Structures are given as structure tokens and as C-alpha cells.
Simulated scan of single mutants.
Amino acid sequence: MTSFADLTSPQVADVLAGPRKPVLLLPVGAVEPHGPHAPLGTDEIISAGMCARAAARLADDPDVRVLVLPTLNYGVTEFGAAFPGAVSVSASTLHALIVDVCRSLAAQGFSRLVVVNNHFEPAHVETLRKATAEAGVAYLDLVRRRNAARLTAEFQSGACHAGQYETSLVLADRPALVDTATMATLPPRPVDMPAAMAEGRADFLAMGMDRAYCGAPAAATDAEGRSTFDTLTDLLVEAIREVAS
């Protein structure tokens, strides 16, 4: 059993008293448009998928007990505001929630925690960096160069919102949620999102993403998704090992 919320209160006490160091994972995502083919919850699906795979990989580890917290599905999501389905919270709300959750757990003895995020809107990422630093917990920052260098070429290009990278991951984890017929009709859209942001473009429409995607979703495959999940899980297991050491 790897889900924290599935445990009873006495079972949580047993985890704290047990010989293995407990490490909790907090998956974070957002509710925002991911093209006409991928679900609004793409980011949280990827974060939760990473956490589940890391917990499974370490299920029999003699030193570490990994438990996955309920996913935080809401984030700072302003770039997709022009499209139906985007749900945003303020940076202050996200900051307070992360800090409060982490401090509540730490007060019980769960001091080892890794926040796992796959929604990369700059205000969201910056909020998570500040909140995790304030709470004294780890943050697996996938956009840091050393981590991004281990991911796919599309991810590194910056044209990866609902493109080949993200769509492949959803195909590997929740394939029924991808409209593959629509996906196959979408032409590549090579938008360098970091460069566009640096130019002051503050939403998908201003970036030329009139269908809320960039990259090459038609090239997505579940095989690529499985391979990328392997790499993401490697990164997360390394973060867990660091927190537990």
C-alpha cells in the first residue's frame, strides 16, 4: 500500500514507529487546457504517475518507506485563461497550501517530503520553489538544466505543452483520456515557450498557441511515454534517496 490517504490512523502511527524512513511524495498539477486532444488534468496525471512508479520501485526497499499523498490538482494557471476549463488559484493560495500541508505533516514527524510538479507556468514554479524552501521540504525541479537534460528533445526545446512529450506520458498512463483521432490531425507547432515568455507574451494566444498546444502531439506514442516515465522515475528515486540520506 503506497497511498497515504488509504491508511488508517493506527497504520500511520506504525509507519512513523517502523524501522524504514518514511518519505512522502506530494504530486502537484493544474487544471488547464492541453490542446483539443489531451485532458485538462494532464499535469497532475504525470505527477501522480511519477509518484506511483517511484513508490512501486521502492516498495521492498529495506531503508525507505514511500507513501504518496493526495494530488494537489490546482495551480497558478493564467496562460490558458482564454480557453474553457482553465481553473487557477492565486500564488498566495498555492504558497499557503503547500506550506500548511508540509508543516502539518512535519509536526507529526513526517519531515521527509518531496513535492513533484509537472505544471511549468513560471509563476506556479516560482511559488513552489519559495513555498518548499519556506517549509523546509524538497522540490523536484524538472526545469532545472541538470534535470531537463535527461528528458526528451521536445521538452528541452520548450515546445512541449500538450505536444509529443506530455501526450506520450498520458498515453502511457491514462490512454482512454487522449482523443487519438484528433491528436493525429494536429500539425506541429514549434513555439519556444520560455523565449516567448521572455519577450513578454503572457498567455497561450499571444504565443501563437490558438489551440492551446505546441510541439508535435501527432508524434506521441505510449512507448515514448513509458520510456520518459522511466527517466522521470529515476529522477524522483534519486531525490527520495537524497532526502532519506
Rank of each mutant, 00 (worst) to 15 (best):
M1E: 13
T2F: 15
F4M: 07
A5V: 11
D6K: 10
Q11H: 10
V12H: 08
D14I: 02
D14E: 14
V15T: 10
V15H: 06
L16V: 07
A17P: 04
R20L: 01
R20A: 02
P22Q: 09
L25Q: 07
P27Y: 09
V28C: 12
E32Y: 02
H34N: 09
G35R: 04
A38V: 01
P39Y: 07
L40V: 03
G41K: 12
T42F: 01
I46W: 00
S47F: 02
R53S: 06
A55P: 06
A55L: 05
R57E: 08
A59M: 07
D60R: 08
D61F: 07
P62D: 12
V64G: 01
L69D: 00
T71C: 08
L72S: 07
Y74D: 00
V76Y: 11
T77Y: 06
T77I: 04
E78D: 12
A81W: 11
A82Q: 15
V87H: 09
A91Y: 03
T93K: 11
D100H: 13
C102V: 13
C102S: 14
R103F: 08
L105H: 07
A107Y: 10
F110C: 03
F110Y: 15
V115Y: 11
V115E: 09
V116Y: 05
N118R: 15
E121G: 09
A123R: 15
H124L: 08
E126V: 07
E126N: 10
L128E: 09
R129P: 08
K130T: 12
K130I: 06
A131Y: 10
E134L: 13
A135V: 08
A135L: 08
A138S: 14
L140W: 12
V143N: 14
A149N: 03
L151V: 02
T152L: 06
T152Y: 07
T152N: 03
A153C: 00
F155K: 02
F155C: 05
Q156L: 01
G158T: 14
C160Y: 15
C160K: 09
H161T: 05
H161G: 06
G163E: 09
E166I: 06
T167K: 01
T167R: 00
S168H: 04
L171M: 09
L171V: 05
L171R: 01
P175M: 04
D179E: 05
T180H: 02
T180C: 04
A181R: 10
A181M: 03
T182C: 09
T182Q: 09
T182V: 15
M183Q: 14
A184M: 06
T185I: 03
L186Q: 10
P187Y: 08
P187H: 06
P190G: 01
P190E: 04
V191N: 01
D192L: 01
M193W: 02
M197G: 00
M197E: 03
A198E: 10
L205N: 11
G208F: 13
G208S: 07
D210F: 05
Y213T: 11
P217M: 12
A218C: 11
T221E: 00
D222T: 12
A223Q: 13
A223R: 14
E224F: 09
S227N: 02
F229V: 02
D230T: 14
L232C: 03
T233S: 00
L235S: 10
L236Y: 05
L236I: 07
V237Y: 06
V237A: 11
E238G: 01
A244K: 06
A244F: 05
S245P: 04
